[in-house]
Design a protein around this nucleic acid. Structure first.
Lengths: 136, 136
DNA sequence: TCCTCATATAAACTTATTTTTATATGTTAT
DNA sequence: ATAACATATAAAAATAAGTTTATATGAGGA
C-alpha cells in the first residue's frame, strides 16, 4: 500500500463525494434542469431562478468544480452548459433531469422563457456573436 | 397547476435530494461499500469503520431514510443490507461501489473480515438463528 | 478615458449537518 | 429479576455549507 496508491484512492473518493454533494442541493438541481435545454449565461439562470446573482455563481462554481457543468467565455458573458464528457456524470445528470419533470420547477422554465423573450425583443437583435446587451 | 400536483412535485424533489444527500458523505459511502458484500449488523459496521456506534447508527438512519438500505431485526441485532428494490437507487449504489475499488477503503474490508473471524471463533458457533454473542 | 454591465469573490452571517457524550429501549443470558 | 448486550435516540458541541451584502475584475460601449 504505497503513498501513491493511497493518494489515488483518496482522490477517487473525493471526486465521488464532490459529484454527489453537488447534486444534493435543490438550487443546483434546478440549475441542471434548466441547462438540460442548452447553454445559458449566468443572468439567464439568475432570472429563471429569481435569485440574487452571487448565490447563483456560488452554486455554478460547485457544479463546475464537480465536473457536472462546463463554461465558455464570450465577451462579458459566461455561458454554462452540462458537461457531457464523462459517462458517469452524464448518467447522473440524465436520471436527475428525468425525475424533475414536475410542477415544482415549471416556474423556472417559464421565467427563463419570459426572460429570453425580453432579451431578444428590446430593440436589438442578439445573435450568438452579438456584442449587444445580454440582460433586458 | 393544482395543490395536489405541486405537492407531488415537491415530494419528488425531496426524494431526489435525500438520495443524493445520503450519498454525499464519506462514512455513508464506506458503509455502502461494506454492505456490497452482504448483510451486516451494526456492530460489524462499527468494527469495520473503527468508529463509535452512535455515529454509525446516525449514518445508517440517513441511508435508510433515503431508501438506499433496509434493515431486518433478529433478536438483539439489526442487520442492514442494500435495498435492491428500486432501479434508480440500485444503479446509484452499483456505480458508487464500482468507483470505490481503491486502497482508501481496503482497511474497512480488512477490519470487517478480522472482526467476523473473532465473532465465529470465540468458542461459540454463531449461526444465522443463533442466540449467542454477536460481538467478540 | 470613463461608465456600465456581467460575473466573480470575499467577509460576515445564518442555517444545516455531523460528531460526541450520555442515556434510553428492548433482548437474551444467568 | 438482574445483568449484559445491541442498538437507538437526545442534547450539546463542533464543523460545514449556504446566503447576503459589499466590492473587485474585466469586457464593451460612449
Amino acid at each position: 500500500m504505497s503513498v501513491r496508491s493511497d493518494e489515488f484512492g483518496v482522490k477517487i473518493m473525493e471526486e465521488l463525494l464532490s459529484v454527489f454533494k453537488a447534486l444534493s442541493e435543490e438550487t443546483r438541481l434546478r440549475i441542471i434542469k434548466l441547462l438540460e435545454q442548452g447553454e445559458l449565461c449566468v443572468c439567464d439562470i439568475t432570472a429563471a431562478l429569481d435569485m440574487v446573482q452571487p448565490k447563483v455563481s456560488f452554486h455554478l462554481s460547485a457544479l463546475k468544480e464537480a465536473g457536472l457543468i462546463k463554461d465558455r467565455k464570450q465577451g462579458k458573458w459566461i455561458h454554462y452548459s452540462l458537461n457531457e464528457k464523462d459517462l458517469f456524470r452524464r448518467m447522473l445528470l440524465l436520471s436527475a433531469c428525468e425525475r424533475m419533470q414536475d410542477s415544482s420547477i415549471a416556474g423556472d422554465s417559464k421565467r427563463l422563457k419570459a426572460f429570453l423573450r425580453t432579451k431578444n425583443t428590446d430593440g436589438k437583435v442578439v445573435s450568438l456573436r452579438s456584442k449587444g446587451r445580454c440582460c433586458g
